[in-house]
């Protein structure tokens, strides 16, 4: 019976309290390992540096390439950071405690992913104009670039978290995640880079942003369900 009263006690705590507590824990953990925070951003910068070196340093050509390159770089660095999302929790056993707790896993997972996004995806969005400058993206394209990344990267984090949750119990998770998740990233990439291109050419970009928003809404509603199911499966073995 102690467990009964215990769970009733816990349920009295409000759901928003749970959400913020999880977020706070995530922030504390990530700010204590600062290198993990910076690594995806350095990767983002390096990938963008490779393109002028590998293709051509000619400004006109790079400007044409820039929307796609910045988006692909953002996508890859989000993907790279995804593997760590549940890994340390899995290794120290706190993931098991999260699954055992009576609180809705949906909310915990959502808080974890959003906290993770705000230190990776949001940081990438803030850094994107720098890459735009490096690749000679016209100034008209900058708002489109930032807005599309702002709406698109949370979807990338949510979908990537499904892959991370499915592979958390495996030692060689890193490559496998990209195999599972990259095909699912394609719609976001298409709409994101099209939004930037529309912004560069002066076309209205509301439609693309609306589509990115729709994808985000869908991912917000459904991805946490898939993530929780995947976490339960990964922990069951």
């Amino acid at each position: 019976m102690t467990m009964q009263t215990n769970s009733e006690d816990l349920q009295r705590q409000s759901l928003s309290g749970l959400f913020w507590a999880t977020c706070r824990r995530e922030y504390l953990l990530s700010f204590r390992r600062k290198s993990d925070l910076v690594n995806p951003l350095i990767f983002f910068l390096m990938v963008a540096t490779l393109f002028p070196l590998g293709v051509s340093p000619e400004p006109g050509f790079l400007a044409q390439l820039a929307p796609g390159v910045v988006w692909v770089a953002a996508l890859l660095s989000t993907l790279l950071s995804m593997d760590a999302l549940f890994r340390s929790d899995y290794e120290d056993g706190s993931l098991e405690q999260l699954l055992l707790s009576p609180q809705p896993l949906f909310l915990v997972v959502l808080a974890k992913v959003l906290a993770h996004w705000s230190v990776t995806g949001l940081a990438l969005t803030v850094m994107a104009p720098l890459l735009g400058l490096m690749l000679f993206l016209p100034a008209e394209g900058m708002p489109g670039l930032m807005l599309s990344l702002l709406l698109g990267t949370p979807t990338l984090s949510l979908v990537g978290a499904i892959g991370a949750a499915l592979t958390v119990g495996l030692r060689k998770g890193g490559v496998l995640i990209s195999l599972l998740v990259l095909p699912l990233y394609i719609p976001v990439l298409i709409f994101g880079s099209s939004a930037v291109q529309a912004a560069v050419t002066g076309l209205p970009l509301g439609g693309y942003l609306a589509l990115l928003g729709a994808l985000l809404a869908l991912a917000l509603g459904l991805a946490p369900l898939a993530i929780s199911a995947a976490l339960r499966i990964s922990m069951s073995s």
Partner: peptide, 24 residues
């Protein structure tokens, strides 16, 4: 575990297939 994990993945894929098709 393998079967359940691939089941989740194929369901996620099925939700995505129409989106991918139209976006492409």
């Amino acid at each position: 575990t393998a079967a359940q994990a691939s089941a989740v993945l194929s369901l996620v894929g099925v939700v995505n297939i129409p989106i991918i098709k139209y976006s492409v």
